[in-house]
Write a protein that binds this DNA or RNA. Structure first.
Lengths: 166, 166
DNA sequence: TATAACTTGAAAATAATTATCTCTAATTGA
DNA sequence: TCAATTAGAGATAATTATTTTCAAGTTATA
């Protein structure tokens, strides 16, 4: 983790920015919650635990700065708030998301699924791809298992599988 | 166009909603601007031309209703406003977008590029895909052509191709 | 026609984000 | 070393998109 912070520090310095205590606290929160997709407000509340005097505006400014430097990605799942997601080190492409429409969970896919698709887009539409955003909406494995469990218990009413319809 | 409106009318009736004059005017605006990605405000201004007494809240309500019925898709390109996009009739999947980072244009891809990828996701992550969102960020064919044009004019300084870097 | 269920427009309310303003601490140049 | 400059900070006001409230229609149907 320290190494990672140091590399981020260097990235900031390279652009004439400083890693102030507030910025460092914010980055630490992001690192400690790497699997989550925190909103600015979420980050603010978590940072406040280690640096109670920080202001919400500072968190917004820091997140904006980190987005600009491509250290984090700002994403939007359509729920009205921007979420911030640490970019994996060395990741050339943006990772993908699986949003569950039942429980609201967001899982990540690190694999690159789109290299073939991108080639098609570049060739066919003459569009130079720099980045992509791919999100699947559907039912996550946890909810699917729950459904299986339920239908096992209710085997006498198998016609109640509303959620399994396509 | 009339046929399409009638089918939408039926879809509404099927869910106990009415196609009021305000709703019809809104749908007409969406049909007439099918290639665009209008924000609620954009729609409001266009609807006002044919129904000046309409209120912004009604436009929001109508767009929400149409989204619920999957007649339009609500999309977000990260510029702070939600945009609304008429779903093609009979389209099982959401179409894709090409966002140009230089000129801001948004083009659409109707082709289904993801059927293979979706199979992988369902198998490997045990996730039942219901819908997807795929957006490429990059340079559109118009801007690429402009660059080619410029570099033809400035052949003496070929090292100035900043924007061509990957 | 009466009644209930929907819809609407205007305005107020809300929520996320950004801008402004002043203050402080760090950096620089003499 | 010390004044001058500046980046970054916190507090708060302002903005902007969107939603809700509410009183007043409108429509369908009993």
């Amino acid at each position: 983790m320290e190494g990672r912070i140091n590399r981020i520090k260097k990235q900031l310095h390279g652009q004439k920015y400083k890693l102030t205590p507030q910025r460092e606290a914010t980055v630490r929160v992001l690192l400690e919650n790497e699997q989550d997709h925190l909103s600015a407000e979420d980050v603010y509340l978590l940072v406040k635990e280690k640096a109670p005097e920080i202001g919400l505006a500072t968190v917004y400014r820091t997140l904006e700065l980190l987005t600009e430097l491509k250290i984090v990605d700002k994403i939007n799942f359509g729920d009205g708030v921007a979420r911030y997601d640490l970019r994996r080190e060395g990741a050339s492409h943006f990772h993908h998301h699986l949003v569950c429409v039942e429980c609201g969970s967001v899982d990540e896919i690190q694999e690159d699924l789109l290299s073939e698709v991108e080639k098609v887009v570049e060739r066919k539409w003459h569009f130079k791809v720099k980045d992509h955003r791919l999100t699947f909406h559907g039912i996550c494995h946890r909810c699917l298992e729950k459904h299986e469990e339920e239908s096992r218990l209710n085997k006498e009413k198998p016609y109640l599988q509303e959620t399994e319809k396509v």
